[in-house]
Simulated scan of single mutants.
Amino acid sequence: MPISNRILPHLPSLRRYARALTGAQASGDAYVAATLEAILMDPGNFGVCNEDDRLYLFRLLSRMISSLPVSVSDSVSIQPGAVAPFDLGTVPPRVRQALLLVTMEGFPTTQTADILETDEANVCELLDIAFREIAAQAETGIMIIEDEPLIALDLAGMINEMGHHVTGIARTQAEAEKLWSDTRPGLILADVKLADGSSGIDAVSSILSRAELPVIFITAYPEKLLTGERPEPAYLVSKPFQPETVKVLINQALLMSHSEQVAA
């Protein structure tokens, strides 16, 4: 089978992972492009036929991530008396990689160890560090754009369990724009298709034209938003979703947003 045919099915998940790790479409896709270029330069190095192609691609992507710089703040200055936010720059990159590989991409710890070229015990240590750091994150208001009541309630419950609060739930684009204007949340969780046939993407685009804040899209068809052919979201959750995946991406999005604000 041609190498291109073996790679193509795994490109959406590679893009999803790289974008979530870096917090941006451009930087995430740049890592994926570097991975593909490495294969083009030496096709013989592509995984042998008896090796899992997805595992091989993620391991090569991990090597690219380790060898190329990520634009993340290295430190944050906290004013006396202020609540110290969880700064992504204080967390080693391998901690973030292990967390996303296990919770978002669904790799078991054994395969995550293979991808990161370490042992399983080290991966478990990295996950422990990540969850301890996540637990220390400051409270944020989160807005939900979702037309399915049960899904909206599930998301609201997760947000509250994490120590954040829900600023409101919108079912249409018009409701979403008004809710954002009234509550000014720190993050948005958005479905793609809304109750009246309007688009969650259009609602978010309208909001982002007036403010900068992280957005996580929740969709049954993530591959349609991971083509790399147009401006696309950095954070995607597939339906049906696992609660831990949503929680990790909420924290990742908030952390990257905070790092960007500090850098600015």
Rank of each mutant, 00 (worst) to 15 (best):
L155N: 04
A152L: 06
A174Q: 13
T183V: 04
I145Q: 06
E161N: 15
G168R: 06
G141T: 00
E146L: 09
E117F: 04
T183C: 12
A156R: 13
L116G: 02
R184V: 10
I144H: 08
R184I: 09
N122S: 12
D119Q: 06
I142S: 03
L126A: 01
E177F: 00
E120Y: 00
G186A: 04
E177Q: 12
I134V: 12
L155H: 01
G157H: 14
A136S: 14
Q137C: 08
I142V: 13
E139L: 09
I129R: 09
K178P: 00
T140V: 05
E177H: 02
G163S: 03
E148L: 14
E148S: 11
M143I: 04
A176H: 00
N160Q: 10
E161V: 10
E177K: 09
I151Y: 01
T140I: 05
L179S: 13
D154C: 04
F131H: 11
W180A: 04
L155C: 07
I169A: 04
D128R: 14
A156N: 02
M143E: 14
R184W: 07
A138N: 12
C124F: 02
D147I: 07
A121G: 05
R184S: 10
I151P: 05
A170V: 04
I145R: 02
I159D: 02
E139F: 01
Q173H: 06
P149Y: 00
E139C: 11
P185H: 07
M158C: 08
P149I: 03
R171E: 15
E161A: 15
H165C: 06
R171L: 05
A152D: 08
D128S: 13
I145E: 02
N122E: 15
A152N: 05
A135W: 02
E177S: 04
A136Y: 07
R132F: 04
M143L: 15
C124G: 05
R171N: 08
T183A: 12
E117S: 10
L150I: 14
K178L: 13
E175R: 00
P149V: 04
H164P: 03
E175L: 01
G141W: 01
C124L: 15
E161F: 13
I144V: 14
M143Q: 14
E146F: 13
I151S: 11
A174K: 11
E120H: 01
N160E: 14
T167D: 03
I151C: 06
E139D: 07
H164W: 07
L116M: 15
E117T: 08
L116A: 05
A176L: 02
W180F: 15
G157A: 08
I159C: 03
I159G: 04
A121T: 10
V166D: 03
W180I: 00
F131N: 07
A136E: 14
W180H: 11
D128T: 12
A130C: 01
A170M: 05
N160F: 09
A174N: 08
T172E: 02
T118N: 05
L150N: 12
Q173S: 10
R132V: 09
L116K: 07
W180L: 00
D182M: 08
T118V: 11
G157P: 06
A135C: 04
D119G: 07
L116S: 02
C124T: 13
I129Q: 12
Q173M: 12
L155F: 03
A156P: 03
A136H: 11
